[in-house]
Amino acid sequence: MREWTFLTNHAHVLLCVVRDPHARLRDVAEQVGITERAAQRIVADLVEAGYLERDREGRRNRYQLHAELPLRHPMEHDTAIGELMAVVAGVGRDTVA
């Protein structure tokens, strides 16, 4: 039987930076089980799509979720990304906003 999960690597990376906005991509990659380069590409995708904002704070990045944006698939377009992250992270929606 093949190994698979319900969430994509994009969702896993996003969850990591929602939980720790100052996370290093090296640590994110290790948690998700991908390469650091793959984590960088995923963060770049999320920034380009507007879901994440990346700000430089000294030598580190700080990530901020734009929680109000809808999920991308037409079946889920009525759900905001912040709602999904709140459920998966097990926190209140205003915590991820």
Rank of each mutant, 00 (worst) to 15 (best):
G58W: 10
L52M: 05
Y51I: 01
A86S: 08
H22C: 07
A97R: 15
A39S: 15
N9S: 06
R60H: 11
L25H: 13
E57T: 07
H10R: 13
R72G: 02
R24Q: 09
A67P: 02
E83D: 14
V13E: 00
G90S: 04
H10Q: 14
I81R: 07
E53S: 06
L84D: 01
L15G: 03
N9Y: 08
L52D: 07
V47P: 05
I34S: 10
A86E: 05
A97Q: 15
V96S: 14
E36S: 13
R2C: 04
M85E: 05
V47K: 04
D94R: 14
G33T: 07
V87E: 07
T8C: 08
V88A: 12
E76S: 09
R19H: 06
V13P: 03
L46E: 02
R19W: 04
A23F: 10
P21C: 07
L14F: 08
T35Q: 03
I34Q: 12
T8L: 09
D78I: 02
W4F: 05
M1K: 02
R60N: 12
G58C: 06
V32L: 11
R62F: 04
A49N: 06
E30I: 06
D94P: 07
R59A: 13
H66I: 00
R41G: 05
Y63E: 01
F6C: 01
T95W: 15
R60T: 11
Q31E: 14
V32E: 07
L52A: 03
A67D: 02
V87R: 10
L65N: 01
A80R: 11
H12E: 13
R62I: 06
